[in-house]
Simulated scan of single mutants.
Amino acid sequence: MFKKMSGLIKRFRFFYLFIIAVGVFAALSGCGIAQVSKKDQLKSNLYYGLGAGFYRNGNFVKSMQEFIRAKALNPNSAKNYNAIGMVYMETDRENKAILNFKKAIKINPRFSDSYYNLAIIYIKKKNYKQAKIYLKKALKNPFYNRPFESYTELGKIYIAEKKFKKAKKILTISKLMDKRYFLTYYYLGNYYLAKGKLDESMNNFRKVLSLNAFFVPARYKEGVVYFKQKKYDKAKKIFISVYNENKLGKYGIKSFDYLKKIILYPNK
């Protein structure tokens, strides 16, 4: 009886080790180590770098061409699919972007950039529930190198949901992580504006513009704060400036609406 039990245990151990070996091989294959040569990996990285350069310059056609070349050489690289997804996202092809971000995550379940990018798409769709899920998944990675971006987007969602305590807490964490990330200050400014704390709101919008002088939403919000403070002359100057630079844009149209309102108020 003991001999039979011993034989069963040995067979079970062999089967267990075989399963582990298969799993390890599959994992290595999934991340490209078993299938892609070092030469192809280097070439893929080269094309990826070229694509990133075109992407930063706004040449999305060229960047897509280079990212596709990178993927062809290394189809098991999460960053290649993420890059392709970013081009699709920038060119308003969100369904294709989502497919590529999800492919990147399938290859590397800890790839925070793709979780973040998925969240941005769902924020745009105002599907805040799904966006929060992806942002929290991005933040689970202890090696995520830009967690302040995900915290800031969470803060933005909480403001939209009027969960102001959570918003302030999350945005404060983001600010502590990176004191030069201008979007954190922008949403803190929005938080204080929603709470009616105009001085604190203005301080944050000015901080945004000290870090990024060309960020139009913060300039527009400066005008809004001045308007609420009944400093109509100062508000008028800002709205005129924003309107002249963005006549057909969102903030240009909103500025024009405020300019029409200012006509109804006496100058101060």
Rank of each mutant, 00 (worst) to 15 (best):
F143G: 02
N95A: 11
I262L: 13
N244L: 15
A167G: 07
Y122W: 04
K260H: 10
N95M: 06
I33W: 12
A235M: 11
K137W: 00
Q65K: 15
I262D: 07
V24E: 06
K236Q: 15
A34Q: 12
L139P: 14
V61H: 10
D199W: 06
S210R: 06
K4V: 04
K197H: 11
K136I: 03
G196V: 01
K247H: 00
G49Y: 07
K96T: 00
I68N: 14
K179I: 13
K231P: 03
A104R: 04
K221L: 03
K162L: 11
G252Q: 08
T184W: 02
K137C: 00
K124I: 00
E200R: 05
V225K: 00
A119T: 08
I120T: 10
F148C: 10
V208C: 04
L176K: 15
K156N: 13
F227E: 01
E245Q: 15
S150I: 05
K39F: 10
Y220F: 15
L46E: 11
R146P: 10
N59V: 00
N203F: 09
K43E: 13
L211V: 07
N100Y: 07
S6A: 13
N76H: 11
F18T: 02
G155L: 00
K106W: 03
L248W: 02
K125Q: 10
K103V: 04
K102L: 06
P147F: 00
K228N: 12
N267A: 11
I238H: 10
K3M: 10
G252P: 09
Y47Q: 09
Y144E: 01
F227T: 02
I253L: 13
A235S: 12
L118V: 03
F111C: 01
N80F: 10
E153G: 09
F148K: 05
F15P: 02
K234E: 15
K71H: 11
